[in-house]
Design a protein around this nucleic acid. Structure first.
Length: 683
DNA sequence: GCAGATTGGATTTTT
DNA sequence: TCCAATCTGC
């Protein structure tokens, strides 16, 4: 995303091209900016915000910039802060979800929620669906979860979903959807989808609330507009109202999230719903050299287009695209590493100038292996997120319970971690009683009716736990999160419990995570003055701690899926495993899905600045035997031969290993390159 | 017959 | 890597 645009001819002194300037200055109505890959779209958004504040005298609090990820929001904030020397106070730069959270918080009462309502993550939600469906089949559960999520994102109520159900399976799912929605409300909880859906219903149903929010924002900017789903689009529509003063920035050629409900149709819808819509295309690319851009253009022309775009650049043609056929998977990994080393040596480049991109996660394995063997540092994109770690979820459960004791999933986790003599039998009995009385587990535990059903050995630990939570609830209402949290940690003796559970090494890292978590809470509480409820709710929307140091300054090859690479750029890119069945994926053969696969390839190509290598395997190991593979149709569609003349002869494992050793020996003689460069941490 | 080990297979991911 | 299915040894 960090496109440091080199200054080329034909620029205004500000370094903006005419189209960009037009997009920044246009304020007469709704605007759609079709920003091709590498055309400086983030720049346009930031400059437009600056322009609105500095020249149009719009107050920062009247502007909202909406992104999809925290990372993008953070980057935008930083860019604006840098550009204006300080962060404009009151400016909203938020993800769709955090903006939604803000609205749900402010209107919680109307929605029938208490201020401390919980936000369930997908694991919590899956647990509920599991209970309601009675299935243990994991695949089925996942299907139910995504189906319900798609319904929610499509703004379908359980009743509408039931009416639209086209078979018995979907009818069953619609019933589970209904029960699921009821459960969530009983727990005083919302899921991620609700954070968009609830504001939409709110604005739809109440003219007063609609007016209030429409008056709030005089201009709204949306990044990655092509990734919006129906609910998000409705939210935008309702927030802008008749004034329709917004800037949507997107690229239909980079729409790769259709499978999770994003609808490129929202681009066309914009032209229908806002006939006065102004469309500006950004086609000058500042990222890639000519041949790379040409291939991307040629490939994407195979997709039907609503708005035709053709990227051009002032960079020269640059290096040829290298298509390499490999004998099989391991040879591919070694070939790529060898080429990478050779290329890096030749161009005096850094490891961090290189990215290896693939369709699906497991493809990384062979490359990791080869990189480790060659002692080349690398970083893997994705990975487990901080707030998904068991130790963090444990503690979060306590905090959730303190803020909202209707939160049964949090109750169960907290009550049983660390173990305190509350077993599954006890919880089952408690659960039955609570269900009968239609109350929360927490409330049920204190009732005489429940006490009569169990003996005192069962009851005692429960009551003790209940009083424990009560005490901390009392404190949490009076004291800051920063004060309460360390006492909570001590009271449950979490550190010792960790060391009892795990090997010393893992316990150590886990405890370090807890401390990091602690520091984060302290900061939010003391520095930002956030209440515990706010902290807990914000946390649910974050995947990583906002740490920028990760990976930065560390010279390493990037391994990433194509999806995760969107928005990034690299000097030199290797697209690997570009075969039929992988890209396009064998499950994505129908027209629409195939187009999305093509866009995925397009995203991959356009990540590259200077050089692009594409590899595919003639055979791949499947069990004991090697099965033949075909090069992806996309290679020909981009106007490339499936194997470059330079490597017509297949690179097989033995020759590549020999060359690698030779290269390594050569590198060892080069003083400025350290062959013993640090390897990434093992875990 | 069962636990633990080994093998094999894998869409894509954020909030 | 991670998870599920299959195999091995008792």
């Amino acid at each position: 995303m960090s496109s440091s645009a080199p200054v080329t001819t034909g620029f205004s002194p500000s370094g903006l091209n005419p189209r960009q300037r037009e997009a920044i200055h246009y304020l007469d109505g709704p605007l759609l900016v079709l920003a091709g890959a590498g055309s400086g779209k983030t720049r346009v958004i930031t400059e437009k915000i600056v322009h609105l504040i500095e020249t149009c005298e719009i107050k920062p609090h009247q502007i909202a910039a909406i992104t999809f990820t925290n990372k993008a929001a953070l980057e935008m904030s930083e860019r604006i802060a840098k550009r204006m020397d300080k962060s404009p106070k009151g400016l909203t730069i938020a993800t769709f979800h955090s903006l939604g959270l803000r609205m749900v918080r402010e209107e919680a009462k109307t929605l029938g929620y208490k201020p401390g309502f919980s936000i369930f993550d997908s694991a919590d939600c899956l647990g509920i669906i599991n209970e309601l469906s009675g299935t243990t089949d994991k695949a089925k559960l996942r299907w139910l979860q995504t189906t319900i999520s798609l319904w929610k994102n499509g703004l379908l109520s359980p009743v509408e979903a039931a009416e639209a159900a086209k078979d018995e399976e979907e009818a069953v799912a619609a019933r589970i959807y209904r029960d699921y929605a009821n459960s969530l409300h009983a727990y005083q909880a919302v899921d991620f989808d609700d954070l968009i859906r609830l504001p939409v219903t709110l604005l739809q149903d109440s003219a007063e609330i609609r007016q209030k929010w429409q008056d709030k924002f005089r201009h709204i900017l949306v990044d990655e507009y092509q990734d919006t789903n129906t609910a998000q689009y409705r939210l935008l529509q309702q927030l802008t109202g008749v004034r329709a003063s917004f800037t949507a920035v997107g690229d239909d050629d980079q729409a790769i999230y259709g499978w999770r409900g994003a609808d490129v149709e929202n681009l066309r819808r914009l032209t229908e719903d806002f006939p006065q819509l102004k469309v500006i295309k950004l086609e000058q690319n500042y990222r890639s050299t000519g041949k790379i851009l040409g291939a991307a253009n040629t490939l994407i022309q195979n997709n039907p287009k609503l708005f035709a775009k053709s990227l051009w650049s002032e960079h020269g043609p640059g290096a040829n695209i290298n298509v390499i056929a490999c004998a099989e998977g391991e040879a591919e990994a070694e070939t790529v590493i060898m080429k990478l080393q050779g290329h890096r040596f030749e161009h005096r480049a850094k490891f961090s100038d290189y990215a290896i991109l693939y369709r699906s996660n497991h493809q990384a394995r062979l490359f990791e292996q080869a990189l480790r063997q060659q002692r080349i540092p690398y970083v893997l994109s994705g990975g487990q997120s901080f707030f998904d770690k068991a130790e963090i979820k444990d503690l979060l459960a306590y905090l959730r319970l303190l803020v909202n004791d209707d939160d049964d999933p949090a109750f169960i986790r907290a009550a049983t971690t660390p173990r305190r003599g509350i077993g599954s039998q006890t919880l089952a009995t408690l659960g039955r009683y609570a269900a009968e009385r239609q109350i929360s587990l927490f409330a049920a535990m204190f009732e005489e009716g429940f006490a009569a059903q169990v003996n005192s050995r069962v009851l005692q630990p429960l009551r003790e736990f209940g009083e424990f939570i009560n005490r901390f609830q009392w404190r949490a209402q009076r004291e800051s999160a920063a004060d309460v949290f360390p006492d909570l940690l001590a009271a449950i003796d979490y550190e010792n419990w960790l060391y009892d559970q795990e090997e010393a090494r893992t316990a150590e890292t886990r405890w370090a995570n807890v401390q990091e978590f602690h520091a984060w809470i302290t900061k939010k509480s003391d520095d930002d003055g956030k209440t515990l409820a706010e902290i807990v709710q914000t946390m649910a929307l974050m995947s990583m701690l906002e740490r920028r140091d990760q990976g930065e300054g560390y010279d390493a090859v990037q391994l990433s899926t194509l999806h995760a690479a969107k928005g990034l750029e690299f000097g030199h890119v290797f697209l690997v495993g570009i075969e039929e069945g992988i890209l396009p994926h064998r499950e994505s053969q129908e027209a629409e899905k195939l187009e999305e696969e093509r866009r995925l390839m397009y995203v991959g190509i356009t990540r590259a600045q200077r050089s692009l290598h594409i590899t595919w395997c003639e055979k791949r190991r499947q069990g004991k035997d090697l099965v033949p593979c075909e090069p992806s149709r996309f290679i020909e569609e981009m106007g490339c031969e499936t194997a470059s003349s330079a490597s017509k002869e297949l690179v097989d494992k033995s020759t590549s290993t020999a060359k690698l050793d030779f290269l390594k020996a050569m590198l060892q003689k080069t003083p400025e390159i350290d062959p013993e460069a640090p390897c990434p941490p093992l875990s």
